[in-house]
Design a binder for these strands. Structure first.
Lengths: 238, 238
DNA sequence: TCTCTCCGGTGATCCAGATCACACAGCGCT
DNA sequence: AGCGCTGTGTGATCTGGATCACCGGAGAGA
């Protein structure tokens, strides 16, 4: 099956390749079937907004493919990116469960597919299947845990260099691992990286120069090679 | 019933005065009874640690009376206070549900009582009572929501004065409300306030001077009077 | 090919807030 | 009283990173 954006569509959660990997997908057959029935799937272009900060929650989105940027913006226009979500992530869950407005804006960084589950149907399912409710609780507590790391980073890490080092290390675990160095594709602009670690475009640029000069890192086009994890860890130190 | 610290002990959740007010207390009779059976209650002195950041989760604490400071500290010794908890709050829930270590340290700021619910018993209860699991999910999503506000404050609010103004406003809602001014007891040191808004003792001190000079605020001993909410809101503006 | 726009690099300046350094006030202790 | 301790108030510096300003390269689109 092909779509306007050249993606393969997954139309059944039960046969989804990431079914086993993620909390929300890995349910009993009945609950899974039910989930499959109430979901509707759609493919979104780059730049599409799944939901916007402040909207009343309509439902949750389960990301099947693509990358999604979660961000929040102050009245003066300053933006921070709180998370880059990948396939398998559940978006908007907190808003739906707590019935608070979405606390972030979710927009597609590249074309991708997402399943939508309306709020009422989801809550009904949770009432019927205790296992699903527990699974959701676990997912929420994981979210909370991640949010907490973010608070620690923003509140405790002092310098931008520390934060950038931390970020690179967290990325490097996902990249190609070899000896003490690893490699990863960099598909964010300096501006966006600045929004993640809470600093300006210029500072990010200068930090990369500095890291390059110190041989901690190497950049060829969009690929970033981490030359020395230990050295980065020393910068983090906290 | 009297205790070493001069507190009345509440020994039954079903008759607790705050039973109706808080998510976790307000369950069906069966679930409530069960909760009452598996909990054990204790009274703690000022300074007692309910749990410490990094420990494996033993269970949750439901605070019956007193105030608890939740904080996290970096290796270099910098500390941030993430929340001041009051009666009715459930502490350690995320750690228990996700089975991650406690992400904060909880210590009593004044003598108080707390019920302890061991991890295994709680999880068992959640499996048996779907309503309880859903309740827990809601509690977690509320926690998440609060954490998010914190991220916004730390990441987006620019100046310390903005953060302090925000904090005072959030406190003033709980204090004695009159016209446009309100009054509240200040039982934190400048140092602790600094740890909440992420700045130094000296800066807090200077900010209070400044606010006093601008007639936004008045301080007599431990009571703080907010003279003009609108003016504080103008400082926040974000 | 030319132009437009976005992104990255880097220098120059400036300032808010951290840091250091005292002074002093309240309070419990012996 | 005299001592230590904890918390507060306020000056004097120092500095890291924001801000402004400009340039050059890469890609898109006509």
């Amino acid at each position: 099956m092909r779509t306007p954006y050249g993606l393969n569509i997954l139309d059944n959660c039960l046969t989804c390749p990431s079914r086993q990997e993620h909390l929300f997908c890995n349910l009993s057959v009945q609950a899974g079937q039910r989930l499959n029935d109430i979901k509707s799937t759609a493919v979104y272009p780059k730049g599409a907004m799944l939901f916007i900060e402040g909207q009343q929650p309509r439902g949750v989105f389960v990301l099947c493919s693509g990358k999604v940027k979660l961000s929040t913006t102050s009245r003066e226009g300053k933006t921070i990116i709180t998370k880059i979500s990948n396939a398998g992530d559940v978006l908007g869950l907190n808003a739906v469960v707590s019935n608070h407005p979405y606390e972030v804006t979710a927009d597609m960084m590249e074309p991708g597919q997402a399943n939508f589950i309306p709020r009422d149907s989801l809550l009904q399912l949770l009432r019927e299947f205790p296992e699903a409710a527990l699974r959701v609780a676990q997912q929420l507590s994981r979210n909370y845990y991640v949010a907490y790391q973010e608070i620690r980073t923003l509140g405790l890490a002092t310098s931008p260099s520390e934060k950038l080092a931390k970020l690179l290390l967290s990325w490097s675990t996902k990249g190609t691992q070899t000896d003490g160095s690893s490699q990863l594709r960099l598909n964010l602009t300096h501006e966006e990286i600045g929004e993640i670690i809470g600093t300006t475009r210029e500072t990010v640029s200068r930090l990369f120069s500095e890291f390059r000069k110190k041989q901690l890192v190497e950049i060829k086009g969009a690929t970033l090679v981490i030359r020395s994890r230990p050295a980065l860890e020393k910068i983090v130190q906290s």
